[in-house]
Design a protein around this nucleic acid. Sequence first.
RNA 1: GUGGGUGUAGCUCAGUUGGCAGAGCAUCAGGUUGUGGCCCUGAGGGUCGUGGGUUCAAGUCCCAUCACUCACCCCA
Length: 423
Amino acid sequence: MTPLQSIKGFKDILPGESELWQSIEQQAKTVFDAFGFREIRLPLLEKTELFARSIGESTDIVEKEMYTFQDRGGDLLTMRPEATAGIVRAYLQHKLYAREAVHKFYTIGPMFRRERPQKGRYRQFSQINAEIFGVASPYADAQLILVLVHLMNALGVTDAKPHINSLGCPACRPAFRKALQTFLDGIGDHLCSDCLRRRDTNPLRVLDCKVPGCREATANAPALADYLCAECQTHFATVQQALKDQGVAFTIDDRLVRGLDYYIRTTFEIQTSALGAQNSIAGGGRYDGLAQALGGPDIPATGFAIGLDRLAEIVGTIRQSEPLQPALFIATLGDKARTQAFQWLCQLNTNGIAAEMEYSDKSLKSQMKRADKLGAAHVLILGEQEMLQGTATLRNMASKEQMDIPMRDLADRLIERFLKTGD
RNA sequence: GUGGGUGUAGCUCAGUUGGCAGAGCAUCAGGUUGUGGCCCUGAGGGUCGUGGGUUCAAGUCCCAUCACUCACCCCA
């Protein structure tokens, strides 16, 4: 019988890789602390309606990628495919806007989408999210981009550059959408089949198509920038100026159209070439209308999500994580010695000293081999001779020096020794 | 949902016109009846992804199926 396997698109993070994730998460927390973001932890499960109303009924995510099921009470529930909707829900539910005008959150955790897996894309994937509520100013957008750039630098990710765009607002986007649709109607046969479908459902996405034929056909398409209202223009210009003032290099990409319905004005992505077809490791934008659409007050908001799996893959090629090396390995010969050794081991471990021992009956040679493989700095040998003498032998693995230590209060002596010298 | 590639030891992979299932690394043991790294010797470990077909004979050829993977779509 073949052993059970994990579900397609769900992966294990084994020791060796988990250290990498821990260090990225730690680094992110450090950056968030400095920029004034506080952690919010949320359920993985929400009512389906929340995502349908926030992400957009006609998006692929809602139409065919969500893990949705009915619970025993009859409610339709969904494993969250993204975090923003849940954050907004919690923000509204607890009326946090009534306590303070401005809130800055971050959260780290898994999301679920039933897509076909490939490099850098899994059915369970983790994101680091950051959101700012209550700030309409473009400086909030600029700050988020700066947080991303700062974090990438701190992690040593050099092949990563912000791409930014403005999608306009409810005042100016409809006019552009109409102009674009008219243009697309005129070039019908030159578009790929996907784009023909998009022309009706979501014309802006045609601009984002990678098919060369579509790129050519839309080369002279109306540009969103020409349709932005005065307020949107000022907003976008301020974002750019703020980034320049901070010395952040960025690319204006007027075809950067994001998939979720709720984005307006500023959108941005951090792109890299290190992940095959998946060139985006983080993305976000402004979503001022969402709080109101979900039944709350009209509160401006902006945020981003980092693909943690993708980030870990990139950072992992830069760094290698080594297992923690024990300060001491205890080798024993005989049952009595082993019993004594386990007492000492427990004492050492509970006092914060990384120590290991051999539990089964093995030759001293093979125990030394294992100690060496684990990278133990010292080996404590307790055999029959030592038991008779009332001492144990402490061997320094690097210098090969050995010394006898009385068994009485031995653990205390070692704890003192290792805590003091640190080796 | 669509298309391509790959499935042989724990890992990385050889396997010729169809003819006894292989290597390196790793593991374990011995060389030293109580001392690691290097070296030497040996051992264990395989439903060749799974099921069917062709054949005297299939890891190899044919069909189906599953898994993994890359890409499209979409997105982080």
